[in-house]
């Protein structure tokens, strides 16, 4: 495998890590809109309180790695998706500050305002990330020079909106599974039902979107069926979908969380495998697509970055694992909580 391919997969892995980790944050945030009491809503906040900003770092690092390894993709996509990304930033800002702001003032209106910022910030973030991803899958208006020539409204096509919706449903299910492991009694029972119900919507919409993708972007299916990994990923993906309701039924939410994390990773892996070696297909002419070769940095930069990743990522994973372990188990509301 060449350096460009390694970096394509590493960046896919960073974004998969981001989707798994901030995905449950977004899910918990969206579900907090349905919290029935102050105590319940505080459990939502505190279930992700100690970990959410570490999770958001995956996005920051993914963005930095994309800039470093494929600057042309970073420049074209980020400037092309301008308004959508500005809205995403607004949503992420409101979510971020709601934790600290909310808990500091004990007024009903104040707290409900930040509940709203937290819930809708999470919902909008999940949706916009999905829409952006949908646009990559369906192809982006890019000209022969690799420049974006569309508008904001081109991005809001029905296909991408449906991918946005699918992302929201996936993250709600993922978040419900996470929160079920973090809560007790009535809230836990409700998370259980949420997980079961969203699983049905997810499965139906995912199947429909796969067919739609096949119709709308046949180029994604040109090469991948010849690759054995395609079937490995697909089997794991289908396995995760099937095993989820079984685990819900037997109340095994820690294992269900692993299964839904695997599901998120496999969906991204599957999409990446189908795109490869293109990074951003052009909807004007497939030959104008940004690929892992025409959009990449020099070999020296890719090598240097690989050394940085090889030193840094194992360390990050080690202490992140340790920190997550400290906070395992049910949420306890104490004086230091949000």
């Amino acid at each position: 495998m060449d350096l460009n391919s390694i970096w394509f997969w590493l960046i896919s892995a960073l974004f998969a890590g981001y989707a798994i980790l901030d995905g449950f944050d977004f899910g918990v945030g969206i579900l907090s809109l349905f919290g029935r009491s102050e105590k319940e809503r505080r459990i939502h906040f505190n279930a992700i309180g100690p970990v959410w900003d570490g999770n958001e770092v995956w996005l920051v690092t993914g963005g930095g790695a994309l800039f470093a390894a494929f600057p042309k993709v970073y420049a074209t996509v980020f400037s092309g998706f301008y308004i959508a990304l500005m809205l995403l930033l607004v949503a992420l800002i409101f979510r971020a500050v709601s934790f600290e702001f909310r808990s500091k003032v004990e007024s009903q209106i104040w707290r409900r305002t930040w509940d709203f910022a937290f819930g809708f910030g999470s919902l909008l973030s999940a949706f916009l990330l999905g829409v952006a991803f949908g646009n990559i899958l369906i192809g982006v208006p890019i000209d022969a020079k690799g420049n974006f020539i569309g508008t904001f409204f081109d991005l809001l096509n029905p296909y991408s909106i449906c991918i946005g919706l699918l992302t929201v449903i996936l993250f709600v299910m993922h978040g419900a599974v996470y929160l079920a492991g973090k809560s007790e009694d009535e809230l836990r029972d409700r998370c259980h039902r949420w997980a079961q119900n969203t699983w049905i919507y997810f499965t139906v919409l995912y199947t429909a979107m796969t067919i739609w993708t096949w119709l709308a972007s046949p180029f994604l299916f040109e090469r991948s069926p010849g690759n054995p990994f395609f079937y490995v990923l697909l089997s794991i993906l289908i396995g995760a979908v099937i095993v989820l309701p079984v685990l819900f039924k037997s109340d095994k939410f820690n294992r269900a969380f692993i299964a839904s994390s695997v599901l998120v990773a496999m969906m991204i892996g599957h999409a990446a495998l189908s795109l490869y070696p293109r990074f951003v297909p052009s909807s004007v002419d497939l030959n104008y697509s940004l690929t892992i070769y025409n959009a990449s940095s020099s070999d020296l930069t890719l090598q240097t970055m690989l050394v940085i990743a090889a030193i840094g990522i194992p360390v990050v994973i080690t202490y992140s694992f340790f920190i997550q372990r400290v906070f395992r188990g049910k949420v306890e509301i104490t004086k230091e909580s949000y």
Binding site: T61, A65, I308
Partner: peptide, 24 residues
């Protein structure tokens, strides 16, 4: 991008993970 992106990515890997994780 060939030069400027690497320090930004390094900042994420070596610094942001560290401070946000341990702040929690």
């Amino acid at each position: 991008g060939d030069i400027f992106g690497a320090p930004l990515a390094a900042e994420g890997i070596f610094a942001f993970f560290l401070e946000s994780g341990f702040l929690g």
